[in-house]
């Protein structure tokens, strides 16, 4: 089997993220110190989740138009992978918060929004598992995923920016400049996002193939 080019790209970008992420210069900022390097690992988890969930949403909408079971399988497996990355983002954020803000969790719009987002997607998975009929399950969960994605945007992109937040990039002043993302960090940060996202898609792709095999097995 020859590895597809985008899987090789994922490996290369992740290796680059680790090497460049630790060895390049970063801005010297109070409180953050070296932990600013978490940008390449914690923040990218959330970017990955948002991108993967977008793919899940697109395939959900595609299903509504096509009624093809394949589209529903892709929507389900990408959503599951996205949830894993979301959980990793939440845990790593909690560790980072403990050593910069002094607490594992603070009652902050961004943090609570992230937790609420995960709950919305847990509900998506529970909804899926609670409906026996596969066509009904696909249709209802596709409609729900439109709602889920909209809620995610509200919870982690809009609400935190309307209030004050400890988390960088919020409090009415969004954008990368607020966390002093200088150009040396950009050349690691952007490839890191692509690398982690491709890894997530790789995992999702394998899960989709296993899912299809299982369906075929059931048919026999």
């Amino acid at each position: 089997m020859k590895l597809q080019w985008w899987k090789i790209l994922a490996i290369l970008l992740l290796a680059y993220t680790i090497v460049a992420g630790f060895l390049t210069d970063v801005p010297r900022l109070a409180i953050l110190h070296e932990s600013i390097r978490n940008l390449y690992f914690h923040v990218t988890m959330w970017f990955t989740m948002i991108i993967v969930m977008l793919i899940s949403l697109i395939y959900g909408i595609k299903y509504l138009g096509s009624q093809k079971a394949e589209h529903d399988i892709v929507a389900e497996e990408t959503a599951k992978t996205g949830v894993v990355f979301g959980i990793l983002g939440l845990i790593t954020g909690s560790v980072w918060a403990k050593f910069t803000w002094g607490a594992w969790w603070v009652n902050d719009a961004k943090l609570n929004g992230a937790a609420a987002t995960l709950l919305v997607y847990f509900a998506y998975l529970f909804l899926r598992s609670s409906i026996e009929d596969s066509e009904k399950r696909a249709r209802i969960s596709a409609v729900y995923s439109i709602f889920a994605y909209s809620m995610m945007i509200v919870f982690i992109m809009i609400l935190p920016r309307l209030t004050d937040s400890l988390h960088p990039g919020n409090g009415g002043n969004p954008g990368f400049n607020t966390y002093d993302l200088d150009n040396t960090m950009r050349i690691v940060f952007y490839p890191a996002i692509i690398g982690w996202t491709l890894l997530a898609l790789w995992i999702a792709e394998v899960r989709v193939r296993i899912h299809k095999l299982r369906l075929k097995q059931d048919e026999k």
Binding site: M1, L3, V19
Partner: peptide
């Protein structure tokens, strides 16, 4: 630290490739 993380990454990637091939 970089070496350790690279080893972990390589290990996970090899595992991932094996799963991919199995499928």
């Amino acid at each position: 630290v970089v070496a350790v993380l690279l080893i972990i990454l390589i290990g996970l990637i090899i595992f991932m490739i094996q799963i991919d091939r199995k499928v």
